[in-house]
Design a protein around this nucleic acid. Structure first.
Lengths: 329, 329
DNA sequence: CTGAAAGCGCTAACAC
DNA sequence: GTGTTAGCGCTTTCAG
C-alpha cells in the first residue's frame, strides 16, 4: 500500500502539499491539486488513519458498551447512535461486554490508549468506579442506565414514572392483585421501576404484597418463565403482571399459556421496551416504549459535544404506554 | 497522559528499556525493571496503541461485518468470534452495515487504513466485488454467507442438505403440500435452500407447486406474516411450511394463528437458525440448528491464521434438525 | 503557493 | 543489559 511519500514523489511535489490536498486546505493551485489527485488515483493511495491519528491524537472512533448484543432493546438505540456519529464523521465500535469486567477493561484501555475518543455506556453492570475514574480524563456518556451519584452525564427516561403509568393502567382496568417481575435491584432502573409500581398501588390504596414481587437475576425469557411459575404458585394468584422487560414478560406469557390460562382473560401482562418480538406474541404485548432511536442520537450528540470540549447536561426523555392485546380484556 | 519519554526520564533509563519492560523482553535486570514499573505506576502511564500500531503496522483489531445487529441469528456467532479473538489477543469491532454500501465503505477503509487487521464478513448483501478487491491485499473470511466463485475462504454449513433434511422431515410426517417461504434468491443460501427443498420433493415424487413458493425481500417477522397471508390465499392451502429463517417462521406462525388455524394440527411449520425466540413461541418451533458458536470460533481462527500469513482452507460444518411442537402432530 | 523539517509515541536494529 | 537512533505515516509550523 502506497504512502504519502510515494504520492508526493509521483506528483513531483512535497508531502506537505499532498497532505494539504487530502485535507482540502484551500491554498493549493488547481493545477498542483490535479497532479496530486492523479498520483493518488494511479497509486491507489489511501491515507493511513494510524499516522493521522497519531499526529492529531484523535481517532474519531466512539465506543458503545452494551452488556449483550442479544438483547433486542439496544438495537434501535444503536441505530440512533450510529446515524448521529456518521453524520459527524465519527465511527462507532460496538463493545459486547458480556458484563465481564475483563472485557470491559479491554475496551476502557482502547480509550486510554487513544484508539477511541469516548464512550457511551449502556451496560448496567459496568464497574461504576472504573467508569468514574475514566471519566476524569475521557469523555463518557451514560445511556439509559446511569448512576445518580456520579457526575457523568446521561440520557434516560423517567423509569419511576413509566412504571407508575404501566401499573396505573392495570389498576384502571380493575386489577387489584398486580404482580411485579423485576430484575436485580442492584440496578438503578430496577429500583426506580419498583418505586413507580409501589407508588401506583399506594395511590389507590392497594396493599403491597411481597409474594407478588419477584426479582430475576437475568433478563432472558427463561427467567420470566421461572418468575411466572413462582407467582402462579402463590396463595392468592395475581390477576395482572407488570414485568420490567419485554423479554421477561414474554417468558411470563409463555408460562401462563402452558398452565392452560389465558391472557388477558385470566391474567393481564404488561412489559417494558417495545422490542419487535412483542408484537409477534399471541396475544400481542402491552408495553412501555422508550424513544430509543432519539435516545441514541442524543447520547451520541452529547458525547461528541463532550469530546469537543463542551459541557453537557443530562437529559430525561419521554416514554409512552403502548396498549395492546395482553391488557385488552 | 504520560508518554514513554516521561517514564524513561522518571525511571532514569532510556525509552528503549521502558519499551523492553512493556513488552516483556527478558533482557532486563530485575532491578531496572522494578524502577521502570514504579515510574509507570507513579505516572499512571498507559502505552499508546496508536504509536505501537503505527510502528508495528498492526492494530490487533478485527472487523466483523453484520447486516443488522437486530438479527438474533448473529448473537452466538459473535460470541464465538469474540472469545477466540480475545484468546489470541485481538479485539473485535462490530460493524452494523445495515446493508448500506456507504457504511460498508467506511469499514473497508478502516482496514485499508490499517486501523483493523482483517474482516469477517457475515453480510449477505455485501458488495462482493469490493470484498474481492479488498481481499487481494487484506485478510478476509466469509462466515455463513459466502460467494462460491471468489477465492475468499469461508466457514458455513451445507445449506442445500439442511433444507433437504427439514423438508424430508415434513414429508416423513405425511405432508404432501409443503410451502417454502424463502428470502431473496439473490443470496446464495436462499438458492441453496431452495435446491434442497426441491430435491426432497422430487425424491418423493411430489410436484413443485409455484404457488407454494414465496420470496420475501427481508427477514423481519412482518415479512413472514405477509408471506403466510399470501400462501393461505392460494387455491390449495399447503399443510406444511418451511421458512428459511426463524424470524420468517415466527411471522408465519402468527399469521396462521390469527386466521384461527392451529399449528401443527392444521399446518406444520419448520424454521431455520434456532434463535432463542424459537422456543418461546406457542407452539415451540421446529428448526434447523447451525453450530453458531463453533462457526464463530472457526471464522476467527481462520482470520487470525490468515493475518499471520498462513493459507487457510474453507470449512463446512454440520447442522442439526431440532424437532419441537410445531411439527409434532 | 509550496517545501523543509520537526515531531506525535513507540519499537527494534545496532552499538557499547 | 542498556542506550542511541532511525523511522512507521502523517500534519503543521515556519521560511521562502
Amino acid at each position: 500500500m502506497a504512502n504519502i511519500q510515494q504520492v508526493a514523489q509521483k506528483a513531483g511535489v512535497s508531502v506537505a502539499t499532498v497532505s494539504r490536498v487530502l485535507n482540502n486546505h484551500a491554498t493549493v493551485t488547481p493545477k498542483t491539486r490535479l497532479k496530486v489527485e492523479q498520483a493518488i488515483n494511479e497509486l491507489n493511495y489511501e491515507p493511513s488513519m494510524l499516522g493521522r491519528n497519531l499526529r492529531n491524537s484523535e481517532s474519531r472512533l466512539l465506543l458503545v458498551l452494551i452488556p449483550s448484543i442479544s438483547n433486542p432493546f439496544y438495537t434501535e438505540i444503536i441505530d440512533g447512535i450510529e446515524d448521529t456519529a456518521i453524520k459527524n464523521n465519527y465511527n462507532i465500535l460496538l463493545c459486547d461486554t458480556d458484563s465481564n469486567p475483563q472485557r470491559e477493561n479491554i475496551y476502557f484501555n482502547l480509550v486510554k490508549n487513544k484508539l477511541a475518543d469516548g464512550i457511551i455506556s449502556m451496560d448496567p453492570a459496568v464497574d461504576m468506579q472504573k467508569l468514574i475514574d475514566l471519566a476524569e480524563h475521557h469523555p463518557i456518556i451514560q445511556c439509559s442506565e446511569y448512576d445518580e451519584n456520579s457526575c457523568i452525564p446521561y440520557v434516560t427516561i423517567d423509569n419511576e414514572l413509566a412504571a407508575y403509568h404501566a401499573v396505573k393502567h392495570l389498576i384502571k382496568l380493575g386489577h387489584e392483585k398486580i404482580a411485579l417481575i423485576n430484575s436485580d435491584e442492584k440496578f438503578l432502573y430496577a429500583r426506580q421501576r419498583r418505586q413507580g409500581y409501589e407508588r401506583a398501588l399506594s395511590e389507590f390504596n392497594l396493599p403491597i404484597n411481597k409474594e407478588w414481587i419477584y426479582n430475576t437475576t437475568q433478563l432472558e425469557f427463561e427467567f420470566g418463565q421461572q418468575a411466572m411459575k413462582k407467582l402462579l404458585q402463590s396463595d392468592e394468584k395475581p390477576s395482572a403482571v407488570f414485568a420490567v422487560s419485554d423479554t421477561l414478560a414474554i417468558g411470563a406469557l409463555k408460562e401462563i399459556n402452558s398452565h392452560g390460562l389465558l391472557v388477558p382473560d385470566d391474567i393481564s401482562v404488561v412489559g417494558f421496551d417495545k422490542i419487535s418480538f412483542s408484537s409477534m406474541t399471541n396475544p400481542t404485548l402491552t408495553t412501555v416504549s422508550q424513544p430509543m432511536y432519539r435516545m441514541g442520537c442524543t447520547a451520541a450528540s452529547m458525547l461528541i459535544d463532550s469530546i469537543q470540549g463542551n459541557k453537557v447536561e443530562s437529559i430525561v426523555l419521554n416514554h409512552e404506554l403502548v396498549i395492546r392485546e395482553s391488557t385488552m380484556g
